[in-house]
Nucleic acid binder design. Structure first.
Length: 778
DNA sequence: CCCCTGACTTAGAACCATTAGT
DNA sequence: ACTAATGGTTCTAAGTCAGGGG
């Protein structure tokens, strides 16, 4: 496919979407903001001495196919320091052009090179090792997560904390788990539960591993997610506490029952949000509220309602809270966490795992994104009788918290990973789930599988591209549409685009693009403008293959506004086609592939032998590029403008300082040369006295310090401006193979927690990737 | 084949603890 | 020590995709 990507060999280019690319979704600006370089408070993750480690567990498991192997030892990087053998990873065949995402290579969006400056960093590369930091972060993590001291008493028996369920259920899996621990040599009881995590739950593909499951396990059908599952159910929000503050109707205070007051309060406290002025929101809220007020209630018109007394009450409450002393706050917090402690953990096949969202969603007004037709609707309170519990049949069923009530259902479905579920009150056919946290083995395993699949796409991408290029000119209209859609998904990392219901926000993805979303700009450019997931605007102009351009023009011809560009296509058909090209391939894999290969390529190309600071900046630039490809946006932080002003002021101030120093330096230099000529001459005024103390050398030093600060501040400012609408986190958490990052950190000796490349939580989520070989390439 | 539902991933905003600045 | 900014964590909405049933 010579011409298709021929002009794209230049590698990723940093670019910026035009400022016209603003969000259309509900604004409600956040306060979060861009990545600002901060001194590192955490320690180094990988010291030189343990950069390269043996994956001892690989040897134990002795299955190199990687794919189905029980994943590496978790949370114990610290224990592997001494093992120095390198496990040679399979080298991908590097640089063939096919492996680079197209989007990153060529881009016709109004582009602007990033202004992040790799230089300008302080020469402080290796500061920051105070003694506390000596301990690798991962080691500290290991301690904290391996031995959650308190609670976890799913069995209500503290003494069994670390091994109770393995003991109770080892007939099923406990034996294997225990073995795996013992084989690795004696370890304190404290770490047992974490080490048990070394074992993935049994699954069909596991049979080749050294520690195979008992063969008499009946369900080795690959769909089984767990053998034993123990947990304590869910936490319900506290019942509503009436405040008795009366809102006004027609200027007069109104009596409301607690139930009515609750909903009024939900509305009142949203005064400061964009929702409060949205017509749809108000209408939906008022309709639902009136149902609770009843037909005969005096409140019949929204315009006559005055919620401010309630709003003000709420405001005062918030103030009160924030004025509490830190001790009081801490005490309150502790009390709370004590109450939920036992819900935070589950035991999956005897291994203690964190539960994710164990809290049932509290009642409230629905906050749909974009122009969601249901925004403002009352999301009613969920009761125990709404909840289905999924738990091992051996495990005690959590007690229903309301006396006289019972769970909707208790089931023991081993093929699913959720612990509890209920129907979403806004959309009764939707189901909400309680899952394990991202740090759990179950999530980690499927995460790894996701990235392995994306890596596999690398081997197929060449033929896939050849395939669709051929079909650009197919006479079969469906084939042609599939080809063009695949091209867009590959090149632009678009989402698949499932059909949506009438009662959802009107957003699109690739397969659901409407004719008005694409404009053909001769000779061969396409301009996309549509609202994607979360009603985030995708606005991008790209140069495409002429065949693609012509095809799109043809698809759009004669269709009315609202017509589908791809009328012979939907995600099911598209994915069915993709499955023929590569086993397991679906549209979303391209996004993962595109993101990860971009990071890998960028890092390998752009990383220089600079300071750690400079390297961390390279990482951020790579991250930013991926975020832009994936169109991960955020609202401009509320305080952005004022922050920019402050930085400008600072720069002005520093510039003035610099000018002043220049003047003084000049004077000092003159003075020196005068003195050299006329040694006796001494200045007598105070100014000269002061200046005498500052030698030209000192002034020069001061001057360069100020200059450095100016450059730093300017970089900082530009960076902030650059990132004001870019969300870096989403790609880090969902699209970038963590092994790329870990390997890069090891190779370039960048502590992984430096500048928060990975935060504590992300490290926990990616525990499975921590022992990757430094030579790993995506 | 649809069409529908269930399960799971991906997403930005809200929340809130920590840190930086004064 | 206080306050404001910052950014990590939690929350839950909104996607993707598989698979069951007609």
């Amino acid at each position: 496919m010579p011409s298709l990507h021929g002009d794209e060999i230049d590698g990723p280019i940093a670019f910026k979407r035009s400022s016209a690319s603003m969000k259309k979704n509900m604004p409600t600006p956040t306060r979060s903001s861009g990545t600002v370089v901060k001194p590192n408070s955490l320690g180094q993750h990988c010291q030189k001495s343990n950069l390269k480690r043996l994956r001892v567990e690989d040897v134990l498991m002795s299955d190199d196919s990687d794919d189905d192997k029980p994943i590496a030892v978790r949370m114990k990087v610290c224990e592997r320091k001494s093992k120095e053998i390198i496990r040679k990873g399979a080298m991908p065949d590097g640089d063939s052009e096919d492996e680079r995402p197209i989007a990153s290579r060529k881009n016709v969006r109004e582009r602007k090179l990033t202004t992040i400056n790799a230089g300008g960093a302080k020469a402080d590369g290796d500061r920051d090792q105070n003694s506390d930091d000596e301990k690798p972060l991962a080691a500290r993590l290991a301690i904290s997560s391996a031995a959650p001291k308190t609670g976890g008493n799913v069995s209500d028996d503290d003494s069994e904390d670390d091994k109770p369920l393995t003991a109770r259920f080892n007939l099923v899996t406990g034996g294997a788990s225990r073995n795996s621990v013992e084989r690795r040599g004696g370890r304190s009881d404290q770490t047992v539960s974490a080490l048990n995590k070394d074992r993935w739950p049994s699954d069909a593909s596991d049979s080749s591993s050294v520690e195979s499951e008992p063969k008499d396990e009946p369900e080795h059908d690959g769909r089984k997610k767990w053998s034993t599952l123990v947990h304590n159910g869910v936490v319900f929000p506290p019942p509503y506490k009436p405040h008795g503050v009366k809102m006004l109707y027609h200027g007069r205070p109104v009596d409301l029952t607690p139930e009515q007051e609750e909903v009024a309060t939900m509305f009142a406290v949203m005064k400061d949000t964009e929702y409060a002025s949205k017509e749809t929101f108000i209408t939906n809220f008022f309709t639902d509220w009136r149902k609770i007020l009843g037909k005969t209630h005096i409140i019949t018109e929204f315009e006559l309602c005055d919620f401010t007394p309630i709003y003000e009450w709420h405001f005062r409450e918030k103030e009160k809270k924030s004025h509490m002393t830190s001790e009081e706050k801490k005490a309150l917090q502790e009390e709370k966490s004590k109450q939920v402690e036992k819900f935070m953990w589950a035991f999956v096949d005897g291994v203690k795992e964190k539960v994710g969202n164990f809290r049932v969603e509290p009642p409230g007004l629905f906050r749909g994104r974009g122009e969601h037709p249901k925004m403002g609707r009352l999301k009613r309170r969920i009761r125990p009788s709404d909840i289905t519990i999924n738990i091992g049949e051996e495990a005690p069923v959590p007690v229903c918290p309301t006396p006289g009530e019972s769970w909707k259902e208790v089931k023991h479905d081993k093929t699913v990973t959720w612990l509890a579920s209920w129907n979403d009150p806004i959309n009764e056919k939707d189901i909400k789930y309680v899952f394990l946290a991202a740090s759990s083995s179950l999530k980690g395993q499927s995460d790894k599988e996701k990235y392995e699949k994306a890596r596999k796409l690398k081997d197929y991408i060449g033929s896939i591209r050849a395939n669709y290029t051929k079909d650009f000119s197919s006479n079969d209209q469906r084939k042609k549409q599939i080809a063009v859609a695949t091209y867009l998904i590959d090149k632009l990392a678009l989402r698949a685009g499932n059909e949506k219901d009438e009662d959802e926000a009107d957003t699109v993805g690739c397969c659901t693009l409407k004719v008005e979303n694409v404009t053909c700009l001769p000779p061969n450019k396409l301009q996309f403008d549509f609202l994607g997931k979360d009603s985030i605007r995708y606005y991008n102009t790209v140069e495409v293959e002429l065949a693609v351009y012509e095809a799109i023009k043809e698809f759009c011809a004669g269709k009315k506004k609202g017509g589908n560009v791809f009328d012979k296509l939907d995600t099911t058909k598209l994915n069915a086609h993709l499955k023929n090209l590569m086993p397991g391939l679906t549209a979303k894999v391209f996004r993962t592939y595109n993101a990860s290969i971009t990071l890998d390529t960028f890092l390998n190309k752009e990383t220089t032998d600079g300071t750690v600071d400079e390297k961390a900046k390279v990482y951020q630039r790579a991250n930013k590029e991926v975020a832009i490809i994936c169109n991960h946006q955020r609202a401009v932080p509320k305080s952005h403008d004022s922050q920019m002003n402050k930085l400008n002021e600072k720069i002005n101030e520093l510039t003035a300082q610099r000018d002043q120093l220049n003047v003084e330096l000049e004077k000092a230099n003159k003075l020196v040369s005068k003195r050299a000529k006329k040694r006796k001459l001494v200045g007598s005024d105070g100014d000269a006295k002061r200046r005498r103390k500052l030698t030209p050398e000192m002034l020069q030093k001061k001057l360069s310090q100020v200059e450095t600060r100016i450059v730093e501040t300017d970089n900082h400012k530009n960076n902030k401006e650059d990132l004001k609408t870019v969300a870096l986190g989403t790609s880090k958490i969902n699209y970038l193979d963590p092994r790329i990052t870990v390997a890069w950190c090891k190779t370039h000796e960048v502590p992984i927690d430096r500048d928060k490349i990975f935060t504590k939580t992300i490290l926990e989520k990616f525990a499975w990737a921590m022992d990757v070989d430094p030579d790993f390439r995506f």
